[in-house]
Simulated assay, not measured.
Amino acid sequence: MISNGDLVTRKSYQHDVIFRVKEKSSSIVQLMGEHIRLEADAPLEDVEEVTGAEYHRRKSRVEEQEAYSYRLFRQDYRLLREQREADAGSGYGTEEETSYFQIPPRILHIDGDPLFLKKCIALYEQLGLQVHGQYLHEKEMPHQVLPLIEKVHPEIVVLTGHDSYSKAKGPVRELESYRHSKYFVEAVRNIRRSYPNFDQLVVFAGACQSHFESIIRAGANFASSPSRVNIHAIDPVYVAARVAYTSFKDHINIWEVIRNTISGQDGLGGIETKGLLRIGIPYTKNQEEI
């Protein structure tokens, strides 16, 4: 017997994605992706409970992907740091004399899934970034995003959660064919009315299968999902981290941002954007960096 909180797959989709049952009625279950930002409904007879062995097998594969993405980011971070050290040495004195600190931007991460939010916050902290996390249902994001920005004063805003495209609702090009894309679009528009400068407040928005073109047109710097594919739970973190650790003097190479993610260019895209990191001197013992 399927119950709320159970881990299941869909028979009609060849058991491709593991979901957690969010809510069950007499004939329909509402599903939330366990590792990806996908929300779906399914007939009760279409879902099948996942065995413990199968769940751990798939979880191990996901953890391997996450570890690979983290290694890629750390490699890029080292390259960025070497460049900053070279710039500091040439601009402020000899290498022996140079001692600098860095100030990454503040991040506001608003998530429609409290479990994914917790996972993302842990990764931000692992990457040494200052983040304020807030759980909000996607429908609330357009109304709550500006008060949160005014409270936190971030330089990067991440709006994510769950989404999906439904062929039954209409064609791919229609925004109404998507579960939550319209809320991401409206939230981004509200941000840009008050914060129009794309390089002073950088915005990522979207989730699995989201209407990428509409979110970008609304004013996001980065969004999902160009090919309407599923995106991994932590992909938005790597986008934000790359912006956070790129100097404000440099433009971000969009491909280098995307290649750190699990979803790749089918799942994520964006526009030319400057970094937000600033360095200063001198470094003192009271200052900590990653």
Rank of each mutant, 00 (worst) to 15 (best):
I2E: 03
N4L: 00
S12W: 03
Y13L: 09
Q14D: 15
F19H: 12
K22G: 14
K22R: 14
E23K: 14
S25K: 13
S26G: 10
I28Q: 12
I28T: 15
V29M: 08
V29Q: 10
Q30M: 03
M32E: 12
H35C: 05
L38I: 10
E39Y: 05
A40L: 07
D41T: 13
P43S: 08
L44D: 13
E45K: 14
T51P: 05
A53R: 14
E54G: 02
E54R: 12
R57F: 10
R58S: 08
R61V: 07
E64Y: 07
E64R: 15
Y68R: 14
S69V: 05
R71Y: 08
L72Y: 05
F73K: 09
R74H: 07
Q75H: 08
Y77G: 02
L80W: 03
A88G: 08
S99A: 15
F101V: 11
P104E: 11
R106P: 00
L108V: 09
I110E: 05
L115D: 13
L115E: 15
F116L: 08
Y124T: 04
Y124I: 03
Q126Y: 08
G128T: 09
Q130R: 13
Q134C: 14
Y135R: 04
Y135T: 07
E138V: 00
K139V: 06
K139Q: 10
H143G: 09
Q144D: 09
V145E: 08
L146K: 09
E150M: 07
K151Y: 04
H153A: 13
P154F: 11
P154K: 13
E155D: 10
I156E: 09
L159M: 13
T160Q: 05
G161Q: 08
H162Y: 13
D163Q: 06
K167C: 02
K169C: 03
G170M: 04
G170K: 04
E174D: 15
S181C: 05
V185E: 07
V185Q: 06
V185C: 02
A187Y: 03
V188W: 03
R189A: 06
I191W: 03
R192N: 02
L201Y: 05
V203E: 00
V203L: 01
V203K: 00
F204C: 01
S210V: 02
S210R: 02
E213Y: 07
A218T: 02
A220W: 02
F222P: 01
P226T: 02
N230S: 10
I231A: 01
D235I: 03
P236G: 03
V239E: 02
V239M: 02
V239R: 02
Y245G: 00
T246S: 15
S247I: 00
F248G: 00
F248N: 07
F248Y: 12
W255F: 08
W255S: 11
N260P: 00
I262H: 12
I262Q: 14
S263G: 15
G264I: 03
G264T: 08
Q265E: 12
L268Q: 11
G269N: 07
I271D: 03
E272H: 09
L277R: 09
R278D: 02
I279N: 12
I281D: 00
K285I: 12
E289I: 13
